[in-house]
């Protein structure tokens, strides 16, 4: 693990007497610092799949804009601009696919990725029920899941915390600001 800060920087200058921290090095160091706590880099297969997905997206946009009508330079039609952009997108994505082996800035899915999925599920539940039973119950549920299971807080903190947060939101949004968010009480 490279540490951000004085030491790694010192090492570099020691090996490189002109003592010049080039911009590229510095940017690299900043990114290094940010990546220390992140999951490891993904392999070439993931990179290729990502590039392929972008190609598919671009191709879909290409077909869509073609069907809108491209027109000519003299009389541009509705599809001309999205057509041009999707052509560029597809070309760039193909380059990405070709260089997939050399890219190293994608992350692997880790155990932590399940937490992200769980977090998304709480939001989907929220939006699915909010119109029918108001925001209070799904908000409390969301808060509790995030505190207890995603944040590893204690049971007591999680229960009191989620109740408190919902109460505070009720006071702010419903009682004080009269925002017309669906609410049960």
């Amino acid at each position: 693990m490279t540490e951000p800060g004085s030491r790694s920087n010192g090492d570099k200058t020691a090996a490189d007497p002109p003592a010049e921290l080039s911009l590229a090095d510095a940017v690299h160091e900043v990114e290094q610092a940010e990546h220390d706590l992140r999951p490891p880099a993904a392999g070439p297969v993931t990179n290729a799949v990502v590039a392929a997905v972008v190609i598919l997206l671009g191709a879909a946009a290409l077909l869509g804009s073609w069907s809108l009508g491209v027109g000519s330079a003299r009389t541009p039609d509705a599809g001309m601009w999205p057509f041009l952009v999707s052509v560029v997108l597809v070309v760039l994505a193909v380059v990405l696919l070709v260089t997939a082996k050399r890219t190293s800035d994608a992350e692997r899915f880790s155990r932590g990725s399940w937490l992200v999925l769980a977090g998304l599920v709480t939001m989907v539940v929220f939006v699915a029920v909010v119109e029918h039973i108001g925001f209070e119950i799904p908000a409390a549920l969301l808060c509790f899941v995030w505190l207890r299971f995603l944040g590893h807080e204690g049971w007591r903190t999680s229960i009191i915390g989620s109740a408190g947060v919902v109460a505070a939101f009720y006071v702010i949004f419903v009682a004080a600001l009269s925002v017309p968010i669906p609410h049960l009480f």
């Binding site: 969301l142 995030w146 505190l147 944040g151 590893h152």
Partner: peptide
Amino acid sequence: TLLAPITV
């Protein structure tokens, strides 16, 4: 961990 759900 306390801030995240509030922000969401």
